[in-house]
Design a protein around this nucleic acid. Sequence first.
DNA 1: ACCTGAACACCGTTCAAGT
DNA 2: ACCTGAACACCGTTCAAGT
Lengths: 211, 211
Amino acid sequence: MRKQYHHGDLKNALIRAGAELLASEGTAGLTLRKAARRAGVSHAAPYAHFADKQALVAAISTCGLWAVRDRIEEARQRHAGDPRRQLVEAAWGIVQFGLEQPDHYRVTFSHAVEQDPGYLDTAHGSFQALVGLVRSCQDAGVLAPGPPEQAAVALWSLVHGLVLLLINRQLPGRLLERIPPRRLLLRALGPHLRSAPARARRPGRNHPVVS
Amino acid sequence: MRKQYHHGDLKNALIRAGAELLASEGTAGLTLRKAARRAGVSHAAPYAHFADKQALVAAISTCGLWAVRDRIEEARQRHAGDPRRQLVEAAWGIVQFGLEQPDHYRVTFSHAVEQDPGYLDTAHGSFQALVGLVRSCQDAGVLAPGPPEQAAVALWSLVHGLVLLLINRQLPGRLLERIPPRRLLLRALGPHLRSAPARARRPGRNHPVVS
DNA sequence: ACCTGAACACCGTTCAAGT
DNA sequence: ACCTGAACACCGTTCAAGT
């Protein structure tokens, strides 16, 4: 039972501790010293694995980006062959992530994470996952033709802004009481979605409106 | 030349000092103690006017909300009789505000400001300004009919999300180099805007596409 | 009513020192 | 290579005291 400092993977332990702090105490509760304490280590130990607090925050944010990308890919798999549904459920998955873990979502897209190369790479990857989905929607006539990156920016902005306005309670309260988040999302996505194309993959069957 | 403590309006002086700190040092530089120092007062003096730091932040955020509302109303006045243009320029005004004063925009829509009653009232007012604009766009056939609040949520989300993704540099860099912000905004707004209605106010003249 | 100065707990960061 | 403990500067907040 000699002092072994730690279990050998302090870096990931700190990331997990930070995410837990985020869930239990909110953004203000995310502290290098608290994360170290929770990992059972001195307050200076994290500096052996992270250059500074921002580096830890960037690592936690990168996990959040993975979660977003996972939601997109999960929607694609669960609704294979139905690009419209893929897009709607991917967007809904992101909204759900924000509603379930608001503080994790906030730091994931917070400022001051800009410069971390790992974060930027992952952000790029998540965006590309959306671009891929947009492309298949365009092929199916669900989204208007055009540069897929620009359509992805529009959809990304829409979902991201909606999540933040929802979790920050910056929309009129009486509106949120009457209309559930999913309906708000569908209303917002509606203008971007085209009606079923003539060359639908299952001719003779109307595409049901997603609700 | 007796000690007069201050000029009698320390509260507004602190708000201005905070906004200046935001512009010069960024969000991390916004500190109660620095704001007090900049206002020429001891670090405990702010507590005579603000319950805590959040109350000062909420006051600064409220100023940001006024700026947003002003951009909307300014667009309405400058393009009277052209609802489509009013909507586009209002959105562009908000994007410009974000690009010009990114840190002010960030705190304006940051979390942890939720509970302040003055902030909530102002946020509601700004949202209603957008709802009014949406209504006139619907009357002119520029936006699809339907509950104007829900369309306002969609447009609000779109613009808000775009601003944050832009100022946080969370969109692919090579995309931002090729496509200016205004074009991204127009691309994002496009699917929401309808082509000129039959009952256009200036029949015989095609509505020019805003660019 | 408005402000000061000292005090407290907490934070991020650094660094010499230990294994 | 990995971690500790002391130290420093800075922060938000409180409070007795001054005018």
